[in-house]
Design a protein around this nucleic acid. Structure first.
Lengths: 222, 222
DNA sequence: GGAAAAATACCCAGTTTTTGGTATTGTCAG
DNA sequence: CTGACAATACCAAAAACTGGGTATTTTTCC
């Protein structure tokens, strides 16, 4: 059996290093890389060969919720495993709806993580032990989960989300154009589409929209 | 030299295991134990022989802030190193006031952590590299706090705060002018002053500033 | 393979914000 | 009383953003 290729996205270097150190011994797993910055990661997404993506939710520039969506938009068959501190139903639901296969807490132990990775790599769903209670408590939600496995996605295209993220990092159209290697006109067009789709008024409105739709986290600002 | 005895309190098992796995190689360090539950930890506190306590802040049953206080109340000479994801000044300040010697982020790398542990074990203060900027940026604010307790919020004047609040409600200069019965020119002037004082870039930057300084709450959905 | 959607790019006119000035009136503490 | 600061107001030019279009190329999906 070929080893499972694992890639991890989390803004906490110590955590990544720690988990990798723990997983290093596992014979069936191969740690192919990690990124501290979701945006950087997405730019090199196509070049990576990965079986299971471990994604955090709480990250400064981009929420793991939208990151999962972006990954699955680019690669429908991608196996995403959420690895996060959030033990509330809302986050589980959001992630599952985006199409992630697994959800596990940072308070889990290694064997559970390894188990989750293996299950997910085979295309199966895996919900962490501690999370299951929470999910069970929400019976209707659970039914929804089983019935509608497929993605509730935002109306924004992946490029538009990309541009939106740069806008709310306070970049001007010019800067965005340079960053994405496209014309300023194109950025203007994207901006127009985004404003139209979100019914937001300006960049401030876009930021509020982004917070409300879990595209970014409201707290720690970069 | 005797190895430094380290004890870690954090509710994330994976994180503890990971960090311990990383620190296991260090020759001068000895990992004497960990606890996932601050309360459990405190009950056996007296029986433990520890040099440096690594404490998380964000824990379910008890905040790390209180925990640090408890530790130092029981053992005045205890060396406590905060190891947390919170990169804001408020938390740093709280912890330092409780008497912790070090404050370092989970986004740090291992060498910085090791360095912090060693410094703290010698009774020195250690503030993480990324945190230092935050602390520096807040120094004036601190002075304001000490000197003039009446305006601890910000260096903005009453009127400026008033205008700021309207700006982040996405009103244009014109609308603000009408609302406040002043000239549009005046609003422009206020806007200028606000931008200058806050070092923000535009209305979006002002919103972020307002959130960070608790002038407004970022309203989350459920 | 072909239609639909997405991403790209351009034009233009208009609005808004930002920047860099100056200047007059209050107001309040020392 | 006086000087510092706050609040008011104006001017003008530059930069950025908004909103109305059109149009080509690429990707994606059926």
């Amino acid at each position: 059996m070929k080893p499972i290729k694992i890639y991890m996205i989390d803004d906490h270097k110590l955590f990544i290093n720690g988990v990798f150190s723990l997983l290093g011994d596992e014979p069936d797993l191969e740690l192919v890389g990690y990124s501290l910055d979701p945006q950087d990661f997405l730019t090199q997404f196509e070049r990576l060969e990965v079986d299971v993506y471990l994604v955090d939710i709480n990250m400064p520039k981009m929420s793991g919720v939208i990151l999962a969506e972006m990954i699955l938009k680019r690669k429908k068959t991608a196996k995403v495993l959420a690895l996060t501190m959030y033990d509330d139903y809302q986050h589980v639901e959001k992630m599952i709806k985006k199409g992630v296969l697994g959800y596990i807490l940072k308070s889990a132990n290694i064997s559970e993580l390894v188990q989750a990775i293996k299950r997910v790599s085979e295309g199966n769903r895996f919900i962490g032990r501690e999370i299951q209670e929470v999910v069970m408590g929400q019976v209707e939600g659970l039914q929804n989960l089983e019935e509608s496995p497929d993605i509730q996605k935002s109306k924004l295209t992946k490029r538009e989300v990309e541009v939106l993220l740069l806008i709310i990092q306070e970049m001007s159209n010019k800067e965005i154009a340079e960053k994405l290697f496209i014309s300023e006109r194109t950025v203007e067009t994207h901006r127009k589409s985004i404003l139209a789709k979100t019914n937001a008024k300006g960049s401030l409105g876009l930021y509020k929209y982004a917070i409300q739709h879990s595209i970014v986290q409201a707290n720690h600002l970069s």
